[in-house]
C-alpha cells in the first residue's frame, strides 16, 4: 500500500514537472477506481464521458494535490463532484426513466409480495429494479440524489461522504436523513397508487 502510494506520488511529481505522458500511467492505475465511483452515480451510456471529464479535471488540478492524502482519495473527490455537476446540468427530459410503465408497477407488486429470499433476490436482479431506482432517484435534487446514493446505497459513512463532497459532516447527516425520507415518500406514493 505504501509502495503504491509512493508510485502514485512519483508519477504525480513527474507529470507536474512536465512529463505529460506519465499521466497515462496514473490513469491506467486508477481508471477502475474511477469507473466504480462514476458507475454508481451515472447511467451506463454516459459513464465514459463523465470519467473522461474526471481525468481531465484531475490533470488540470494536479498542481493543487498536496500529497497529504492518498492519490485515490483525492481522485475520488473529483469523481464525486463531477457526478454532482453532471446531474446539475441534466434536464428532466433527458432522464433515462421518466415514467413508470405497467411492467415496473408489476415488478413493484412482485417484490413486495415476494415470500422467499430466493424470490426476493431474483426480483432485485431484474432490469426493472434498476429502472425503478433510476426513476425514484431522478425525482430528487442533485444534492439529495448524491447523498442518498453515497450513504444509503453505496454504504459510505457520513464522514467519508462529507470528505468526498467537501461538505460539513452535519450537512451530510441532515441531508442524508431528509433525502431518504423523500425517497420513501416517493415510493410510498407510487405504492399507494396501485
Amino acid at each position: 500500500m505504501v509502495q503504491s502510494e509512493r508510485a502514485d506520488d512519483d508519477l504525480v511529481q513527474r507529470v507536474v514537472a512536465g512529463e505529460t505522458e506519465r499521466f497515462e500511467d496514473l490513469m491506467l492505475r486508477h481508471r477502475d477506481h474511477v469507473r466504480r465511483i462514476v458507475g454508481g452515480h451515472i447511467p451506463p451510456d454516459r459513464m465514459a464521458e463523465v470519467a473522461h471529464e474526471v481525468f481531465v479535471r484531475a490533470y488540470i488540478g494536479l498542481r493543487t494535490y498536496r500529497f497529504e492524502e492518498p492519490f485515490p482519495h483525492w481522485l475520488a473527490t473529483i469523481a464525486v463532484r463531477s457526478c454532482y455537476d453532471f446531474w446539475r446540468t441534466q434536464q428532466a427530459a433527458e432522464l433515462p426513466v421518466s415514467t413508470l410503465t405497467t411492467e415496473h408497477q408489476r415488478w413493484i407488486d412482485q417484490v413486495m409480495a415476494a415470500q422467499s429470499d430466493e424470490g426476493f433476490a431474483e426480483q432485485a436482479r431484474r432490469q426493472e429494479a434498476s429502472e425503478v431506482l433510476q426513476w425514484a432517484l431522478a425525482r430528487l435534487s442533485p444534492e439529495n440524489r448524491l447523498v442518498v446514493t453515497l450513504v444509503h446505497l453505496d454504504g459510505y459513512s457520513v464522514r467519508e461522504a462529507a470528505a468526498l463532497l467537501g461538505w460539513s459532516v452535519i450537512n451530510v447527516k441532515v441531508r442524508a436523513h431528509r433525502a431518504r425520507q423523500l425517497l420513501r415518500t416517493i415510493l410510498r406514493e407510487e405504492v399507494a397508487k396501485q
Binding site: 469507473r35 451506463p44 417484490v111 413486495m112 426476493f120 432485485a124 429494479a129 434498476s130 425503478v132 405504492v191
Partner: peptide
C-alpha cells in the same frame, strides 16, 4: 415498503458497470 427499498438497494449493488 421496506422490502421495496431493500430490493432497490440490492439492485444498485448488483448493477452492471
Amino acid at each position: 415498503l421496506q422490502k421495496l427499498e431493500q430490493a432497490l438497494t440490492e439492485a444498485h449493488r448488483a448493477r452492471h458497470i
